[in-house]
Design a protein around this nucleic acid. Structure first.
Lengths: 219, 219
DNA sequence: TAGATTGTTAATCGATTAACAATC
DNA sequence: TAGATTGTTAATCGATTAACAATC
């Protein structure tokens, strides 16, 4: 009698997971304005996605809707958080406390979605020892020790490009398994570590292309 | 005798354009370390992409390679910049000069890739009038006037979520055609305006999912 | 009940990869 | 020439959409 808990389809496309985050954000907004339920077609049209896609995306993970009614916003929010793993808070380490790092420390959105920066590191004597948002910056040398002690798995990398790969090596050594990378370089990582890259200049390039393309086609 | 300049395939997938930015970044790195040429297979393997995909991506826009040799890095860099539209500098306006906005003003990567923040706006009396990186923050009320005067098409939106859609409305009015959106909300935009969204909490969620998935599958 | 809407299957569409003649 | 590598076509793979029975 085999009744193992059924693994959610192990082959979830990346695009699906990305839309899950988008649905979550929209549902949280709907909750804020007091909405109780929403249909796949209404949710989709707010986000530029078809109703079929919305339903298919959720179907990868289970049955969350009510035929004739739609989805209950509150319930769906908590299902999605469970899927993404943000139903509990993730402690994280910030590597690099320059301009961008300091801004990230002040960003409230992380906390709202279940992430808390518990450690911050830098190498500059001008920054190590200072406090931002109540968190004191340690020297990067102490990172392995402190990351292990606090059992941290996620790192936010906000160091200059040329320092990135060296930092990554010690992060991996220290047991970090996920890196949010703001440095505009390709990281050399073992396959056992996940990375999400955010390159601000690349994003602007995508925008420039979209604007140019539109300009050309409307001639 | 029809010999109009051939439009590059008007149906370029978004994913292709995104990889173009990635190739560009890698090629610039290769140039820095003195490399003259590179094959599709070597370039691809650095980025986790197949050789066929590299060649196909470029083929959307023309023939840039040399059979038996590969691609000349310098040449390819300038081709890609031309495609993306970053062969000349784009002036941009920053809306919102809080934590994140100030960090973006200090970010050198924009300049390196062909973007220059020429105007910065806020509404807080504590910030309007101050200078960051040699740029003085104007009140948002003056945005339409100044954006028109400087013929700016790109805006970087770094305001709180609740202020975003109001700001967007006046940006569109002012003639902005591309918005890089850091506010964690869906923007209501006419189809004539392009948007690229960067939601930092969403990126961390993607990372959390990847880490959890790996943890589960290796049990 | 009638109307709305789900979950799911099958059909369609689009993107990636394999293969190879052409070229240096 | 032999070896390397491109550009491109056709085959494969995967993701999106349409359609509809089941359900509330």
């Amino acid at each position: 009698m085999t009744s193992q808990k059924q693994d959610p389809d192990p082959n979830v496309p990346k695009a699906v997971v990305s839309r899950l985050s988008l649905y979550l954000r929209e549902l949280q907004q709907l909750l804020r304005v007091g909405r109780k339920t929403i249909s796949s077609s209404k949710l989709g049209s707010r986000l530029g996605v078809t109703d079929a896609q919305v339903r298919k995306d959720f179907a990868y993970f289970g049955q969350f809707g009510y035929p004739g009614i739609g989805y209950r916003c509150e319930e769906l929010v908590s299902e999605i958080r469970q899927i993404l793993g943000t139903d509990h808070t993730w402690p994280a380490a910030l590597i690099g406390c320059g301009n961008l790092g300091q801004a990230l420390l002040g960003y409230r959105g992380f906390g709202r979605q279940g992430f808390q920066v518990k450690l911050a590191f830098d190498v500059s004597p001008e920054i190590v020892g200072r406090s931002f948002e109540g968190l004191t910056v340690d020297h990067l040398d102490r990172m392995p020790e402190l990351v292990r002690e606090k059992e941290i798995r996620l790192a936010i990398l906000a160091v200059p490009a040329k320092a990135a790969n060296e930092a990554v090596e010690s992060l991996v050594q220290a047991g970090i398994t996920g890196i949010l990378n703001f440095a505009p370089v390709t990281l050399n990582l073992p396959k056992s570590v996940s990375v999400v890259g955010v390159d601000l200049a690349m994003e602007l390039e995508q925008l420039a292309f979209a604007v140019v393309q539109r300009t050309n086609s409307s001639k």
